[in-house]
């Protein structure tokens, strides 16, 4: 019985990380289709990212991404690469790319928010949070 359970769980553990569908969401008050396409292009071209959320608000761009499992050690490199790419494409925006789960979680919560001022405040708060070291 114990052996049976073992053989049953090992494939479950091994297949837990599969599933290749990238979920990319963009929040934009002006609803500019071009921006959506560009964000999608950048995130789709990056192999190490499996999910991303971008928020355009008041000349600020917050991109929260999630690195694939086992690639946590590459997070800073991924952030740097993506920041460079986004800054090239959106020169008029103040860009922040983060692979932190907190920012990803909060950014996804903001997707439902209608009040632009609230989104703006929240993005500012998240940017400050991201800078904290201890």
């Amino acid at each position: 019985m114990k052996k049976m359970a073992f053989f049953f769980f090992v494939p479950l553990l091994l297949t837990g990380c599969s599933g290749n569908e990238k979920t990319i969401e963009v929040y934009d008050v002006l609803d500019d289709a071009q921006k959506r396409v560009e964000v999608r292009e950048v995130l789709d071209s990056n192999e190490d990212v499996y999910s991303g959320t971008a928020i355009f608000v008041d000349q600020q761009l917050l991109v929260a991404v999630q690195a694939k499992p086992w690639l946590d050690y590459k997070k800073e490199k991924i952030e740097k690469e993506l920041t460079k790419q986004f800054e090239e494409r959106f020169t008029e925006f103040d860009v922040l790319v983060s692979a932190d789960y907190k920012l990803f979680w909060e950014a996804n919560k903001l997707m439902e928010e209608k009040d632009q001022q609230k989104v703006n405040d929240k993005v500012k708060k998240l940017k400050e949070l991201e800078k904290e070291e201890t």
């Binding site: 932190d100 789960y101 907190k102 920012l103 949070l129 904290e132 070291e133 201890t134």
Partner: peptide, 17 residues
């Protein structure tokens, strides 16, 4: 860790403590 990240203002960098 996830509890603190989701319900409080901790990031992955600061949640260790």
């Amino acid at each position: 860790t996830y509890f603190y990240i989701i319900f409080f203002d901790f990031t992955e960098k600061t949640v260790g403590n």
